[in-house]
Nucleic acid binder design. Structure first.
Length: 889
DNA sequence: GGAATCACG
DNA sequence: ACGTACGTGATTCCG
């Protein structure tokens, strides 16, 4: 069976208009070197990326209007009259838009006397007759009259990159009429934007009612005499001609005399060289970077790039391959993200001109490879050293001598560019010679080795070559940013520390978890029954939608908050509903236990490997602030705040009897960082004197003389205010958080800034710096760009301002614990301890150790942590230990 | 695949 | 007037 052909038809004018106005705000920032406005072209191209990927057409055309005069203006002179002139900033973009379309393999077309709609209608009809599948993209809902079993109309909503698909069914659901009735609707109600009238006093509601009853304008007028006497009837009779004319105007001509046919418009894909030239001309860097040869190309590569030659590694040539003393690129290949468990499919190493590839992981286990891996003097260039370290470890090797990690370098240069794909990153630095993994291996369920081994080898080779080629450029950029130390002395060594922590893993007592799971199961069952009783019916408690119906419709509780999709049923909402019914408490309990059960009992059990441990992966190049994140499983959000959840920690145990879990955390590290970098003398004094910072703040903002006057509630509010400052305060946010009025929150903040004046200066200075240089930095020159700081959109700009205040604080705290971790691994080794660092949870480090080493750790760990950096205030570290993680707190 | 919810610092 | 706290990840539902 042959698959039916796919046709893509684009309403060029309509989409261009939408594109132009969607990016109207950015009009003046999208200007080519020649002074041409490019915002519409840019947004149009974004839409193309999306729709081409989705439709994958065999044939494609973009239709444009030929001018103002058409056969419709002949029928009705004022058709589309009164429209204001197309802005010059847009009309100048049309010729380029057509050039873009050609370069993207899509035929642009216009026909004098006809509108784009008619071209589209005609081709869609021809395609329909051959049972092709057609997608029509437009911003104009009128085109939904063309929907059929084979034709889908895709409407751009909210800009041009959000698309809504209309099938005949969707048209009916959304508009209440069949696609064929749209022209009747327009006939009755007219169209103000196209400037033709319908029947007097008939709007959408009346028109829909009439169509519901009569089906079409023709049938309506056949029976108009039978209607009861009414104003409506008079208008209908009066405006009969107008109604028929309007229907005619609204009807798309599906037999326009086109000068081309379907056979003339094959979709030819990106014409890479022309397209690259076009992007360069318009200064479209991001599109240029995304540009690459399509997968399955015969390797032809128009971008200067070369395909590097390679040699397949064998036992015989291994020695020769390992001989060069210059730094070598090295990469172990795995297809799954989780490198702790993914099969290893091959590896590559070498220097330019001498690339060696292999699809035999066993070679990594040879003595020769082991010696080379462990030889610190043999420097290695890698992409994601941590991943390679773990993989080498699985092959019995110890990867040392890491000199340059492309992934870490690109992350530090711009944390927004947090791709994990070598190809994508290389492209963003202008190296187009390497494909992305998605292109070579596919994604999701389709991910697999290429059929042709040479494709695999070539990909490995191109990756290694890209690392080598980009190294000098990126290292220079790091130096330009004053980030070479951060890179060399912090992130690079940390990647090895993290690899060792991940490999160590933490032991989980599965039996313990299962026992807890059984108990939770019982509790859930009881709660479930109770909730069904109270609701008077069974429903899915896990479905916020169904729960909303029960609470707010059936039980008539007041709606406190709405979400995009319906009623909010989140904790803060439910808390406010407690007095209405005991069902609320049961739901809250159910939610709490269900969360623990699904995420922490069942979820955790799934990640335990045969060694009885879980081996998380720390993502070192993800967060915008420099923190780590933890996945598969996430060990940075194990419950602690509520007693039921906290019990989960009883399942985290040392790897052998006679050992314990030891934990140390920084106390108030973010506020200490704030005190230090703001230079605020009052806040510094509080820390230097070892005072309770929240109580101290309470005394200051409530104007008390003595700590004994601070009530628990005052301290709670002061604490929230301290947090608020760190997050980039707003009176509204604070008022919400501690349940006070907005003016009160405002007074709090004013009092706070009066007491800590240099903190106020710090917040103002941070925003100022972001405005002036476009980015903010941490103590160690970690950088975050904040393009939103100049936005005209209040929300976007406000967010950037809060981020400007928060990132140096959160990020510097992240820097500090990273330094501590590197020093800690060093210290444990130097002291010859068996103690092993296992986990990092942002401001705490968790170890396992023989009981006999606990006394040593109690001194050593805090010492290493509080001496990681020298701030203007002391760092305080608190420790605890016990037989499980539960006890170590 | 997005939205809602909730776990952590 | 705008409409919010900063940084994350996993699970579930549902179109």
């Amino acid at each position: 069976m042959t698959q039916s052909k796919k046709l893509l038809l684009i309403d060029g004018n309509s989409v261009a208009f939408r594109a132009f106005f969607a990016m109207h705000q950015q009009l003046e920032s999208f200007v080519s070197p020649d002074g041409l406005h490019t915002n519409a072209i840019y947004a149009f191209n974004n839409m193309l990326d999306i729709i081409l990927k989705e439709v994958q057409p065999d044939y494609a055309l973009a239709a444009f209007d030929a001018g103002r005069t058409t056969f419709r203006t002949a029928q009705y002179a004022d058709y589309k009259g009164g429209r204001s002139k197309t802005p010059e900033e847009l009309s100048e973009q049309f010729p380029y838009l057509q050039e873009l379309l050609k370069d993207r393999g899509i035929t642009p077309y216009q026909l004098s006397n006809y509108e784009a709609d008619d071209i589209i209608g005609t081709l869609a009809r021809e395609a329909d007759e051959q049972a092709w599948d057609t997608s029509i993209v437009t911003g104009d809902r009128d085109l939904t009259q063309l929907t059929s079993d084979h034709t889908t109309v895709v409407i751009t909503v909210k800009g041009v990159t959000q698309l809504e698909k209309y099938t005949p069914q969707h048209v009916e659901d959304k508009m209440g009429i069949k696609p064929s009735q749209i022209i009747d609707l327009k006939g009755l109600m007219g169209d103000t934007s196209d400037n033709y009238p319908g029947v007097t006093k008939v709007g959408p509601k009346t028109a829909l009612k009439l169509l519901d009853e009569y089906g079409s304008i023709e049938n309506l007028y056949d029976h108009v005499d039978e209607m009861k006497k009414s104003k409506l009837k008079e208008h209908l009779i009066e405006d009969k001609n107008q109604a028929f004319l309007s229907k005619k105007l609204a009807t798309i001509d599906r037999h326009a005399p086109l000068t081309l046919g379907l056979a003339d418009i094959p979709y030819t894909g990106d014409h890479l060289e022309e397209l690259a030239e076009f992007y360069r001309k318009l200064n479209f860097k991001s599109f240029l970077n995304k540009l690459q040869p399509a997968a399955g190309d015969d390797g032809a590569n128009p971008f200067a790039g070369q395909l590097h030659e390679y040699t397949e590694l064998t036992a015989a040539n291994l020695a020769a391959a390992l001989k060069p003393t210059a730094p070598q690129a090295f990469e172990i290949e795995m297809l799954d993200d989780n490198y702790h468990t993914s099969p290893i499919v091959g590896f590559v190493l070498g220097t330019p001109g001498h690339w060696y590839v292999s699809s035999q992981p066993e070679l990594l286990q040879t003595d020769a490879m082991h010696a080379w891996l462990a030889d610190e003097s043999r420097r290695k260039y890698v992409f994601d050293g941590k991943r390679n370290y773990v993989a080498a470890n699985r092959m019995g090797g110890h990867l040392q001598g890491l000199e340059f990690d492309l992934l870490l370098a690109s992350y530090l240069l711009d944390v927004n560019n947090n791709s994990n794909d070598l190809g994508e990153i290389a492209h963003s630095y202008g190296d187009m010679d390497v494909q992305t993994d998605a292109e070579v291996y596919g994604t999701g369920a389709h991910r697999s080795m290429p059929e042709d081994a040479n494709v695999f080898y070539q990909h490995l080779t191109q990756k290694a070559a890209a690392i080598y080629q980009l190294e000098p450029d990126l290292y220079q950029k790091l130096k330009d940013h004053e980030q070479d130390q951060l890179f060399r002395d912090m992130e690079m060594p940390l990647s090895v520390v993290l690899a060792e922590m991940e490999i160590a893993g933490i032991t989980v007592d599965a039996e313990r978890l299962k026992k807890m799971g059984a108990e939770f199961q019982q509790t859930l069952k009881v709660l479930e029954e109770k909730i069904y009783n109270e609701a008077g019916e069974k429903f899915n408690i896990n479905s916020p939608k169904q729960l909303g119906v029960i609470l707010f419709e059936k039980m008539n509780m007041p709606v406190i908050k709405k979400t995009k999709t319906g009623y909010s049923t989140s904790v803060d909402v439910l808390e406010k509903l407690k007095s209405y019914s005991p069902i609320i408490d049961d739901i809250l309990n159910y939610r709490q236990i269900a969360k623990i059960q699904s995420t922490y009992v069942e979820g955790l059990l799934k990640s335990i490997l045969p060694d009885h441990k879980v081996h998380t992966r720390y993502l070192q190049t993800l967060t915008q602030t420099g923190r780590l994140s933890s996945v598969d499983p996430n060990l940075q959000n194990i419950p602690i705040r509520l007693p039921e959840g906290r019990k989960i920690r009883q399942a985290f145990v040392p790897r052998q009897d006679g050992w314990e879990i030891f934990s140390s955390d920084y106390s108030q590290i973010e506020l200490r960082v704030l005190a230090s970098i703001s230079g605020d003398t009052n806040m510094q004094e509080a820390f230097k004197e070892g005072r309770d910072i929240h109580a101290n703040t309470a005394m200051k903002i409530f104007g008390l003389d003595d700590p004994s006057q601070v009530t628990p509630n005052m301290r709670r509010q002061a604490k929230a205010t301290n947090f608020g400052i760190v997050y980039g305060i707003s009176d509204y946010g604070l008022s919400q958080n501690i349940g006070i009025s907005r003016p009160e929150a405002k007074r709090f903040i004013a009092a706070y800034f009066e007491q800590y004046p240099q903190v106020k200066e710090y917040t103002e200075k941070s925003v100022q710096i972001a405005r002036e240089q476009g980015y903010v930095e941490t103590l160690f020159h970690r950088r975050r760009y904040l393009p939103g700081i100049h936005s005209k959109n209040f929300n976007v700009r406000s967010f950037a301002e809060r981020t400007a205040m928060n990132t140096p604080i959160q990020g510097s705290a992240a820097d500090i614990i990273k330094v501590a971790m590197i020093n800690m691994q060093q210290a444990l080794r130097a002291e010859g301890l068996q103690a092993t660092m296992l986990l990092q949870v942002h401001d705490e480090l968790i170890f396992e150790a023989p009981s006999a080493e606990i006394e040593t750790l109690k001194k050593l760990v805090p010492k290493v942590m509080d001496s990681a950096v020298k701030l203007a205030v002391p760092l305080k570290v608190e420790s605890a230990y016990g037989p499980t993680w539960f006890a170590a707190k």
